[in-house]
Amino acid sequence: MRLPCPLCGDRDRREFYYQGHALMLERPLRDAGDAAWDNYLHNRDNPAGETRDLWHHEAGCGAWIVVTRNTVTHEVLDAILVEKARV
């Protein structure tokens, strides 16, 4: 498996650390309530198909990126830096 780091280009999966769904970017306010935090930290759509998830180019440039990917085929459709994904 290879992932396209926006800064470094195509790199082997073993250079990356995986973090899970990109909704982790939408961190609730501290007092957003139990349900909001439960949804943020635990509950997932967990799609069988296209998803957006977070990877860290740990053994490369250090960038955190959002990869658009298919969980059934492992096709990689897109990868952007998290700072661009937040906008």
Binding site: L25, L54, H56, G62, W64, L81, V82
Partner: peptide, 13 residues
């Protein structure tokens, strides 16, 4: 270190 990168880039840019 990974955690600091996460917080800095993703949560508190």
């Amino acid at each position: 270190m990974t955690h600091l990168e996460w917080v800095s880039q993703a949560l508190r840019p």
